[in-house]
Each structure stands twice: as structure tokens, then as C-alpha cells.
């Protein structure tokens, strides 16, 4: 029997010890189904967005469960599912080295251009 421990973060990747998120244990045995992440595209032309997660025995069932759980109110036109264990997440404890160096590099934002008047909504 394989036991996968998945560190799963919710609500903006706040680790549990800091007040949120939870550890998910996905047991691959006869009594529990693996966890799947669901991505829904809401309209033609827009990208798929993470909608949530659910349990299912296989990919086909995950699509159907997602259809029932996440598209009941016409939210979607396309569904992607991927088993949660295949997602690798960045570690929130490494946030400092990963994200903070970008903070003082304002020249990376295209805010120094003079835009012609004709260009709107930038």
C-alpha cells in the first residue's frame, strides 16, 4: 500500500502552522479515492482557472464529479482535472528568496513609457 503525503495549501499558500491550510493524506487503498485538482474554463477564449479539488476513482469520474460539483450554475465550458499528487507546489517558507528579490526592481514594470494619447486602458 502506498501512502502519499501531500502538503496542500489553501487560501494563498499560508502554511498550517501560521494559521491556515491543511495536510492532505491520500491513501491509495480500497477505502479512499485519490484527490484531484479541478480547473474550469468559464467562457470560450478565457483560460482554465483552479476551481477546487475533489475525490474520484479515476480521471473519467473526476471529470463527471467536477461537472456536478463545479459547473451546476453554468460556470464552465471546459474542465481539466489532474491528480493532486502530480502537482508540485512552491514552498511558502522559501517565499523570501523566491519573491522578495523582485520587490525593488521596479524597472521591470512597463511604467516608464510615455504612451500616446490614442492608447487607452493600459
Amino acid at each position: 500500500m502506498n501512502n502519499f503525503f501531500i502538503k496542500k495549501f489553501f487560501y494563498g499558500d499560508i502554511p498550517e502552522e501560521k494559521g491556515g491550510g491543511s495536510d492532505y493524506q491520500t491513501k491509495h487503498d480500497s477505502t479512499s479515492w485519490p484527490l484531484w485538482e479541478v480547473f474550469i474554463r468559464s467562457k470560450q477564449g478565457l483560460d482554465h482557472k483552479h476551481a477546487g479539488s475533489l475525490h474520484a476513482a479515476d480521471a473519467q469520474m473526476a471529470i463527471e464529479n467536477a461537472r456536478d460539483v463545479y459547473t451546476r450554475r453554468m460556470e464552465g465550458v471546459s474542465i481539466w482535472v489532474v491528480e493532486s499528487k502530480y502537482i508540485t507546489a512552491s514552498n511558502p517558507e522559501e517565499a523570501g528568496e523566491l519573491y522578495e528579490p523582485a520587490a525593488d526592481k521596479i524597472y521591470r514594470h512597463p511604467t516608464f513609457y510615455q504612451l500616446p494619447d490614442e492608447v487607452n486602458h493600459m
Binding site: 475525490h55 474520484a56 464529479n65 456536478d68 460539483v69 451546476r72
Partner: peptide, 10 residues
């Protein structure tokens, strides 16, 4: 299971 509960209710 929750997901199937929703399916049959749908």
C-alpha cells in the same frame, strides 16, 4: 461519498 451524493441529487 460527497461527490456522488451531489451527482445523484443533481
Amino acid at each position: 461519498i460527497l461527490e456522488q451524493d451531489i451527482a445523484i441529487t443533481n
